[in-house]
Design a protein around this nucleic acid. Sequence first.
DNA 1: TGACACATTTGGAACGTTCCAAATATTTAA
DNA 2: TTAAATATTTGGAACGTTCCAAATGTGTCA
Lengths: 348, 348
Amino acid sequence: MTKARVTVIDIAKAAGVSKSTVSLVLQGSSLVNEGTRTKVNAVMRELGYVYNRGAANLRQAGAKSRIIGVVVNDLTNSFFAELAVGVDMVVQSAGFVQFLSNTSESIDRQREVVASMREHGISGLIVSPARATDAADFKPLVAAGIPVVVVVRNLPGAKVSSVVSDNRAGMMSAVMHLAELGHKRIAFLGGFPDTAVFDDRLAGYRSGMEAAGLDYHQELVISSAPSRAGGGEAIGKALVLADKPTAAVCFNDAVAFGVCDGLRARRLEPGSDFAVVGFDDVIEAQAAVPALTTVSVDPQGIGRRGAQLLLKQINAGKAEAETVTTAVRLVVRESCGARKSVKIETGL
Amino acid sequence: MTKARVTVIDIAKAAGVSKSTVSLVLQGSSLVNEGTRTKVNAVMRELGYVYNRGAANLRQAGAKSRIIGVVVNDLTNSFFAELAVGVDMVVQSAGFVQFLSNTSESIDRQREVVASMREHGISGLIVSPARATDAADFKPLVAAGIPVVVVVRNLPGAKVSSVVSDNRAGMMSAVMHLAELGHKRIAFLGGFPDTAVFDDRLAGYRSGMEAAGLDYHQELVISSAPSRAGGGEAIGKALVLADKPTAAVCFNDAVAFGVCDGLRARRLEPGSDFAVVGFDDVIEAQAAVPALTTVSVDPQGIGRRGAQLLLKQINAGKAEAETVTTAVRLVVRESCGARKSVKIETGL
DNA sequence: TGACACATTTGGAACGTTCCAAATATTTAA
DNA sequence: TTAAATATTTGGAACGTTCCAAATGTGTCA
C-alpha cells in the first residue's frame, strides 16, 4: 500500500543528483556519465519508479504521447480482428500502445471515440471508417497535425493516407478464373453501391468480363447488404432471372456464404451446380463446406502496412497523404467447381 | 494549420472569465452561473478547444485517467475478439477508453505491455493472463491501487478479482447429456493439466460421471495441447484402449474439431459412430459438419461482466477481490448424435 | 444601514516531467 | 600554469489542468 508515487525528484534525492540528471538518464541521453547512469538506474529499480508519461507528454507538446488510436467498425468480424493484430504488432514493437475501439458502423460512436482519443493526445490514428463517414470528418485531426491513415475503405476526397487492398485486380482475377472454367453468365452479387469499395470491385468485375470477352449485363449486378443474409437475398433475385447466371463473384465472403445457403435451400450444390467466389478470405472460408474459393486480402498485412505508414508520418512530423494498395491473390478451393470436394484431411 | 493549442486560458480570455471558471464548466460543476456556462461553452466550440486529459490527469493524482487496459492472449481467436468487444461496450459507455493489447501467450510481452500501460496511467486492468503467468505478477499494480480483473483463466493465489465461466457446471451437464443418450464410457480429451481451467473442467467431468452413476476411469482422461492438432492426438490414444470409449467431452471446441478429424481419418463418423461434445461454442461450431454440440460460454458476456466489475472497483476506490462465475449452457447440435443431420436451413 | 448568508468567481500553488541557459568539473593544449 | 575546450550537472521556468482558500457580488433581514 505505498501511497505516494515515486517521482523523478525522489530518485534524484536518493541518488544524490539533480532531477535534470535523472531526466537525462530517462531519455537515454549520452550526456550523462556512465557511473551516474548506472547509479540512477539502480535507485529507480530499488524504489520501484514508474515513469509518468502523462507528465512528460504535457511538457513535450503534442506528438510524443506514443499512443496511437485504432478504430474499426466490427471487431467481431475476424477480418478486423486480424487487422488489429497486425497494427498491434508493429505498433508494439515501436514502443507505442494502441487505443482500440469498435464503432459497430455507428458514425456517432465513431465521432465520440475519435474525440475521446484526441483528448488523450494520440500521436496518430488508424481508422477503418464506418459507412457514410464524411471525408471532412478527419479534417480537424489533420489540421492539428495528427496523421491519419484510413484502411480497408478509402475516403475519396479526404486528404489522408490510405491502405486498401487491390479490389479491382482481385475481382478481375476472380471473374477471369470463372470464365476460364467455361462460365459465360457471371453475376456480381452483394454490397452497397454507395461505397468506394463497391465501386472498385464492380470496376474489377467489368474489367474481368471485358478481358474474357464477355458482355456486361446490368441485370447481373445485384446489390444487397454485405452480409450472409444479404447474400441469400441476392442469389434469390439472380435465380429468377429469365437468363440465369451459372456463376457469381460476391462482394465479400459473408455474401458468398449466404449465396451458398440460398443455393442449397433451392437444392443446388455450390461448386458443382453453381460456381461461387468470395472476397476477403476470412478464416471460415477454408473450413467451410464446400471450401470457399475467394480472393485473399491478408488483413493482418493491411494492419501492418497501415501502422508502418502511420509511424513513418509520425516520425517525419508531417503527414503527406499517400495511398498504398496491397496485393491480393485468388485462392482456388471448391466452391468455384474447379476442384472436387476431397474433404478427408490428414489424420494429424 | 493552427499551430498553437487552444488552452483553458485562451478560452478564459476570450470569454472574459478566469481559467478557474472555465475549469468548473469543464467539470460540469453546479457552482457556475447558467449564463457564464453557456457563454464559455460557446467560446470553446468556436475556438475548437480540445480537452487535455493528460494535464488534468497530472493534477488529479492517479485513478482518473479514464483509461482501462485490456490484455488478451490471442485476438485472432474469435473468443477473445468477442470478449474485447464486450469490454469495449461497457467501457465506452462509461466514458472510458481502452488500451487493447495482444500477448500471443508470451509472458514477456505481457509484462512489457502491462508496464507500458502503467506508464500511461491506466485506471484499471482487465487481463486474460498468458499461460504460466505468475500470480505475483500483478502484485505491484494492486499495491499501487490499480484494480485488476482477471478473466477467462483464473490465477489462483493472486488476490485479484476474476470472471470465469462456470467450467465445472458446463462440463458436468455435457457429461450428463451423453449419459442420458446411453453412453457409459465417456472420455475427457485434451487440455494441459497444469491450468486452473483444466482442473475445473475435469472436476465437472468427474461430478457428471458420478451424478450419472458411472465409474471414473483414469485411463479415459487424456490430456493434450488444447488445439485442433491436440484433439487428433488425444482421440488417437483413446481409440487404442482395450475398452474403447463411445463418447468424449473435449477440453474446448478446437480439441473437439481435432477429434472429429481423427475419427473421420479412421472411418468413424462423429455423431453417429462416436459422440463428441466441445466447450466454448466458438462461431465455427455452428457451421461445422456435423454441427458441434458444445457448452456455450458467451465471451462477450464475460467481457461485459469483467468491465462492470472493474468499473465498480475503480469507482469504489478500493479493490476488494471478488470472483464471478458466468453461467454456461449446453447447446445440443449434431456431433453428440442426439439430432439427425438435417442440414437444409431455411432459405432466408 | 450593517451584518449575514448565499451564490459566484478568482488568483495562485500544485502535479511530474522536459527543456534551456548557465554553472561546474575535467581534460587538453599552449 | 593558465586558457580554452569539453564533459557533466543543474536550477528554474515551462506544459495545461485542478484544487484550495479567499475574494467578490447579491440579496435578505433586522
